[in-house]
Simulated scan of single mutants.
Amino acid sequence: MKLSYLLIGCILIVFLAVMPAQAFTAKTLTVTLNGNGDAQADMQYDLTFVEQAAIFFHAANPASLLQTALQENLNRPVTVVSAGTSSADVIIPSFATVVQSGGATTMNTPAFSFADAQNGLKGQWYASLITADFAPQTTTITFPDGYQATFNDQISIPSISHTLS
């Protein structure tokens, strides 16, 4: 019996030693604006089994971490509606500025970046053990008139100005 546990333990150690350690991987970020500039953001991501277990056992709180990171990056309060092992939904009040001039409405979104999160990870003691990818494979910002701006594999998203049709 002890030999079987020892064998399983050795196999597990070898498996973990040769397996690349991938951490958080951003898949998609979808930001949907409403007419007053508020935004609903939905992020889809992958987590390792260990990260998922930490959330399941309440050792990690992705909602709190996400809220703090977004509020610091955007300089405004945000509400995390949900955050789990594969996605997060966030409400961002006044994400876009709305300007009305001559009967036209123009919306301007701020530039934002995940580079701070990427750089923040580099300062952690476990940084050499994992590889995290904070640049979403696809970021889509949808305006109230249906116009979409799409970015692929970009860690920083520029400001967008769009006049609603």
Rank of each mutant, 00 (worst) to 15 (best):
M1F: 10
M1N: 12
L3Q: 12
S4Q: 15
Y5K: 13
L7K: 04
I8F: 14
C10K: 01
I13M: 04
I13G: 02
F15R: 05
L16G: 09
L16E: 13
A17L: 06
V18L: 09
V18D: 04
A21S: 14
F24E: 02
T25W: 07
T25E: 13
A26E: 02
K27D: 14
K27P: 08
V31H: 06
T32P: 05
L33E: 06
N34P: 03
G35V: 01
G35C: 01
G35T: 13
N36V: 08
N36I: 06
D38G: 03
A41L: 15
Y45F: 14
D46Y: 14
D46P: 12
D46E: 15
T48V: 04
Q52M: 09
A53S: 13
A53I: 05
F56A: 07
F56P: 03
F56T: 09
F57N: 12
F57T: 13
A59V: 04
A60P: 00
N61P: 00
N61Q: 07
P62I: 05
S64C: 03
S64T: 08
L65T: 15
Q67N: 01
Q67L: 06
T68H: 09
A69N: 11
L70F: 14
L70S: 05
E72R: 12
R76M: 07
V78E: 03
V78T: 05
V78S: 03
T79Q: 15
V81S: 06
A83I: 03
A83G: 04
T85E: 10
S87D: 08
A88P: 01
V90S: 00
V90Y: 01
I91Y: 03
I92K: 00
I92S: 01
I92H: 00
P93T: 07
P93M: 00
S94T: 09
S94F: 02
A96V: 00
T97G: 07
V98L: 02
V98W: 04
V98Y: 03
Q100S: 15
Q100M: 09
S101I: 11
G102H: 02
G102D: 03
A104K: 14
A104S: 15
T106D: 08
T109A: 09
P110T: 07
A111L: 07
A111H: 03
S113M: 05
F114S: 01
F114M: 09
F114C: 11
D116M: 11
A117D: 14
Q118H: 12
K122G: 04
K122H: 10
K122M: 07
Y126Q: 12
I130Q: 06
I130W: 10
A132W: 08
F134Q: 11
A135V: 05
A135L: 13
Q137G: 15
Q137P: 00
T138N: 07
T138V: 14
F143V: 05
F143H: 10
D145Y: 08
D145T: 00
F151K: 11
F151M: 07
F151V: 09
D153H: 15
S156C: 13
I157N: 10
P158A: 08
S159P: 09
H162D: 09
T163F: 14
T163M: 14
L164E: 10
L164G: 01
S165Q: 15
S165F: 10
